[in-house]
Design a protein around this nucleic acid. Sequence first.
DNA 1: TAACTAACTAACATGTTTGTTCGTACCACA
DNA 2: TGTGGTACGAACAAACATGTTAGTTAGTTA
Lengths: 121, 121
Amino acid sequence: MGTRKQSSTYTRNEKLIINCNMSYAVHVIGGRWKLLLLDKIRKGTSRYSDLKKEFSYISERMLTLQLKSMEQDGLIIRNVFAEVPIRVEYTLTPAATELIPILDLLSTWGSKQRALQGDNS
Amino acid sequence: MGTRKQSSTYTRNEKLIINCNMSYAVHVIGGRWKLLLLDKIRKGTSRYSDLKKEFSYISERMLTLQLKSMEQDGLIIRNVFAEVPIRVEYTLTPAATELIPILDLLSTWGSKQRALQGDNS
DNA sequence: TAACTAACTAACATGTTTGTTCGTACCACA
DNA sequence: TGTGGTACGAACAAACATGTTAGTTAGTTA
């Protein structure tokens, strides 16, 4: 991933925070496009080009960065088919599958909360 | 909060993403110290100085920024007591209280996932 | 009038994330 | 030999988040 300055307060604090399981979980799904991608992949195995097509507003750099990060964090599996042209498919890991219902709860909460906030601010 | 450049791709994309309730929810709890603060406040009304003492490694600037942001997003309530010296107490809103059990699920998931990842990477 | 406390606030510096543009590897097929 | 498609990667720039330091307000007490 991006090279990090191990000595910075920023990075030290991040490590500190990630000791908290809750923060760790949020950290793992916190990248800008991760939830969108997870949501798409959960609905069916997707190849790189599918994602690229569906999310044309995500730059290819971000797309690969987020996918790689999720792969490293054990959320998705990357399957390479040595065809020509090459084919790469992404699937959820069991761990990510367990996460989905929690995300659904978050989604419901978010919807309610947004409505509440809309009312009075 | 920090002034934002309304025209940047960064900001445009953020708005785009926040239309997703899931992303909105994660966005609302996604600040670096928010979960820690929520967790403390949920265990009992806390005054500013309590938080400052407990989290001595959080700079005062960050402390106030995160608190203010959570207040704006309807997660906490800020009560000012016009005593001398002044006293400010923070409490969870009902919405945040509903969020807590979801965060607990996330925490459990995080713990399991961290263990899994520790095993094979 | 000066010192003291709580709870901030402003200005600036650093570091990280995200976005933009261009280029690469691989093999097939014309 | 050149073109085409897929799935990336590298270098750079812009914007944002976080961290550091010093200062502010209001009232009270010495």
